[in-house]
Simulated assay, not measured.
Amino acid sequence: MEFLNDYLMIIIWAVVLVGTILIEFETSDLVTIWFSVGAIGALIAAASNVNFFGQIAIFIVVSLVLLALTRPLTKRFMDKEVIKTNADRTVGMHGVVVTEIPFDGKGEVKVDSQIWRAFTTQKDPIPVGTRVVILDIVGNKLLVDVLKEDL
């Protein structure tokens, strides 16, 4: 039975290792890399017949030490400055609805001679011809609201 428990812990730590690596590949923000190294330490401990609580302690200590030592450094390198584009200048501008904007859907707005996909958070649809103000850019769509002067 002891033999089975040893292999079970090796399998569990291998699954934790693979899981944290997969999460790391998906996020690419150095979120779980420390836990991957901690899982390697616990996997080695399990293969060396260290008891369950020793394996857990190794996992936690290795992960937290690496996290404490490297997170500030990696955070500095991973912080990306948001690059402004000329599309940001449309925020605050006024436009005219050219395709009705329903509450839960998207329509179109003409702003500065360009047609943009647009959406709103207000409950009522915004009909064609209504003047709107651009509140924000979300992805490649404009968040708009009816211009207060037109109400």
Rank of each mutant, 00 (worst) to 15 (best):
K110I: 10
Y7P: 04
E81Y: 02
I134G: 05
I126A: 09
V132K: 01
V18L: 15
G107M: 10
V97Y: 03
A14N: 07
I83P: 00
V65K: 00
D88Y: 08
F59M: 07
V50S: 03
H94K: 14
I21A: 13
T130I: 06
A46P: 12
G139K: 03
N49V: 01
I115H: 09
N5W: 11
P125N: 13
K84N: 14
Q122N: 11
V91Y: 07
V50L: 14
I10W: 03
E26G: 15
V91T: 05
A57R: 10
G38A: 04
Q114W: 06
L43V: 00
E100I: 11
S113F: 14
D88C: 07
V82W: 07
T74I: 07
L30C: 11
G139F: 04
K75D: 00
L43Q: 05
F52P: 05
D145I: 11
V132C: 04
Q114K: 12
M78E: 01
F103E: 09
N51W: 00
T121P: 01
V15D: 06
L135C: 01
W116V: 00
S113P: 06
V61T: 10
R71K: 12
D79F: 02
P72L: 01
Y7Q: 12
Q122F: 03
T70L: 03
D6H: 13
V31Q: 10
T70C: 04
A57D: 02
T20V: 13
S113D: 15
S63L: 03
M9K: 13
M9G: 04
G38V: 01
M1P: 00
L22S: 08
E108Y: 07
I60S: 04
I101L: 06
R117I: 09
K148V: 02
I60H: 03
V82L: 14
D112T: 08
V18Y: 05
A46R: 00
L66I: 05
I44E: 08
A68P: 01
G107N: 07
F103D: 05
L147D: 14
A45E: 12
E2V: 00
V98Y: 02
D112Q: 15
T20K: 09
G41R: 00
Q114E: 15
V97C: 11
L142Q: 10
V91I: 15
L8G: 10
I60C: 07
A87T: 08
K110S: 14
L66F: 11
V109C: 11
